[in-house]
């Protein structure tokens, strides 16, 4: 039997010692809670993605430079440029409203996307993405991009998801609408 593991038993445990113990455990517990809270807050501030519309990005401009943003807009078909050798993809999206209520009020997603592409006065945003061109990237598709706004006013997307309103209404599972290489 290994004697090393035997506890040194204290025969008398005074009341004083018990309360000192409690303080010890309380401090330990608080430290852990503080650590968890710190981890959540610091990680959230470092990695938060802000949902913004194209209009909001154009208005806030420099204030959101370098921040991780998530933007959604209507793809303008004529603007799509893709080089399969370098895998560089460029296109322009037009502003679409951010709230579901507004979208519903304007006749649903398909109508909103159509109106956005047709209206030349809508705020627009140029997007650059390095990767394979998704099949669903076409005129009047809804593009959801995660990335950062560059100082040149171009949005550099790191992630690109596409939704097509016609297929959207079939209520197929979510993956169908995502591009294969969205991740």
């Amino acid at each position: 039997m290994d004697l090393a593991h035997q506890p040194q038993v204290e025969q008398t445990v005074s009341v004083q010692r018990t309360s000192a113990n409690k303080v010890k455990f309380l401090i330990g517990g608080l430290l852990i809670i503080a650590a968890v809270v710190y981890l959540i807050i610091s990680s959230a501030t470092a990695n938060a993605q802000y949902f913004m519309t194209v209009e909001e990005i154009q208005q806030r401009g420099s204030a959101v430079l370098g921040r991780e943003l998530r933007v959604s807009g209507a793809v303008i078909g004529d603007s799509i440029q893709y080089d399969p050798q370098t895998l560089r993809l460029e296109f322009i999206v037009a502003h679409t409203p951010g709230s579901q209520k507004e979208i519903d009020a304007q006749g649903g997603m398909a109508a909103v996307l159509h109106a956005a592409v047709m209206d030349p006065n809508r705020p627009r945003l140029k997007v650059v993405y390095n990767g394979v061109k998704p099949d669903l990237l076409r005129n009047e598709a809804q593009a959801i991009m995660t990335g950062r706004l560059g100082e040149d006013g171009v949005f550099y997307a790191e992630e690109l998801l596409l939704k097509c309103p016609t297929r959207y209404e079939e209520a197929l599972p979510e993956q169908v609408e995502n591009s294969d290489n969205g991740n």
């Binding site: 959540i40 959230a44 990695n47 993605q49």
Partner: peptide, 13 residues
């Protein structure tokens, strides 16, 4: 303002 957190948040925290 709608803010979301992705995998980096979970990984770091």
């Amino acid at each position: 303002q709608k803010v979301t957190v992705g995998p980096p948040f979970y990984e770091r925290a």
